[in-house]
Write a protein that binds this DNA or RNA. Structure first.
Lengths: 251, 251
DNA sequence: CCAAAAGTGTTAGGCCTACACCCATGA
DNA sequence: TCATGGGTGTAGGCCTAACACTTTTGG
């Protein structure tokens, strides 16, 4: 240790320049892909076909290839899992990196976790690795493989917090959406009810959050007055923030 | 690729279970250690003694050892760099992971970056690897090695944002501090002036942010009325948040 | 006495909450 | 005509920014 107390990466990789002389790390990505279907928060899960955790559900993910960044690997894995071709509107956000030495029993795996938001989710085609992929309600999954319960909880918390001070909610919506649909994103992720008039004013008062689609309207639930359509605006931050109503947990 | 489209880590590491059969990754940590000295934001930098970037300044850091988590590696590296023995009050926050394939010319290095806050920083003893370590004003560093300019900027932004809605500011302060010292933390990181009376009320109105030290008082600048002393309270979150005054950049 | 910093008071305005109310549509 | 969801208006309250003022210390 003393001989190589590392200044990253000044002192050189462990063992000097012999890349193969040390216990190797594998670098993976894990994806907490969230969507909203029928006013319920859902998450994309895959069933593992092999040990360890065979038969358990897990977050999709995979190993980073030698020439890829973690972001690139995440987009590739997601495209493979969902069969989605147009990932241009996909919001991909790096959550954090999980690096406990024992998190994978086979070898040392450091995993970069991402939260991803999808509108209009396609049905995933069951993976070719004897594992099926499926959207499942956020609450039900029960114990996931590895530390994926924790990653999923972190993703939910991060997304919930980001709704407060960014325009992230539009990433859950189709290209054109009503303010009711946008409000339902907040209500679903936060699991609270919001005052409709106040929400409307708040969103419209934030420059660049949404911009109206001229003349267009749509019936949301088959009933009621047709609602005006909006597109995501250019803004990315919300000032002032749209705070979650204080609940029992948060005073 | 198709043979091993990885479900993390369902499909197994690249190359199946032969850990040594693929181009290895190295996993490093980089630390943006911030402190406040004489009302100025400073960052801990090391001068590189070897190629690449020999003679350039860089963030301290090093490689994760086989049995360590990234957090453990970060604390170890920081203790080695600064010679600080008591890291119990140290706030260490994972920033994000930088994984561009070309970020280190020698081999594939994936780096987990941390932001760390230190009160009363010790003088670092220059490293044994022909590299010196030094506190430097945040603004001056000029181009750092690798992508460390970006990491440092991300750390500053993250810390600035966290001051708004957490009690993080007390991590910059000694165990007992005055409200003036706490306010100067905000003013230094945000580079703005805050209204003293309003800041005081805001802090005292947040339950658990600070708690008074009975009877104690201290002169801050050699002049003026002695200020009451406070300790960090048990709370971790700020509701409602203490928002940065809107500036030109943020409307 | 003066400067500097801590601490207290006060006031005006803004934002936000909580409603009440009207409009348009399908059943 | 009723239920449902969209859209508008408004009164009250809380929070905050802004600034005046007092207190306590060192020079």
């Amino acid at each position: 240790m003393l001989a190589r107390r590392g200044r990253s990466p000044g002192a050189g990789p462990p063992g000097g320049y012999d890349k193969y002389a040390f216990e190797p790390f594998a670098v993976a990505v894990d994806l907490a892909v969230l969507t909203i279907r029928a006013d319920a928060l859902e998450v994309l899960l895959v069933e593992r076909g092999q040990e360890p955790y065979a038969g358990h559900w897990a977050l999709p993910g995979g190993f980073v290839l030698p020439a890829e960044s973690a972001e690139t690997a995440a987009r590739r894995e997601l495209a493979e899992e969902t069969g989605l071709s147009d990932l241009s509107r996909l919001h991909l956000e790096q959550l954090r990196t999980y690096s406990d030495p024992g998190r994978d029993p086979r070898m040392r795996v450091v995993s970069v976790a991402f939260a991803a938001l999808l509108p209009d989710p396609p049905e995933p085609h069951g993976g070719g690795d004897a594992a099926q992929a499926r959207w499942q309600p956020y609450r039900t999954p029960g114990p996931l493989a590895f530390d994926h319960d924790r990653i999923l909880a972190d993703a939910h918390e991060r997304v919930g917090a980001k709704l407060e001070y960014t325009c992230l909610a539009t990433s859950f919506c189709p290209p054109e959406f009503t303010l009711g649909e946008l409000r339902r994103v907040y209500e679903t992720v936060w699991d609270t009810a919001l005052d409709r008039p106040n929400f409307r004013r708040k969103v419209l008062a934030t420059p660049g959050f949404v911009e109206p689609v001229p003349g267009a309207a749509r019936l949301t639930g088959g009933r009621g007055k047709p609602a005006a359509l909006y597109r995501a605006g250019g803004a990315t931050a919300l000032h002032p923030p749209l705070l979650r109503p204080p609940s029992e947990g948060r005073p």
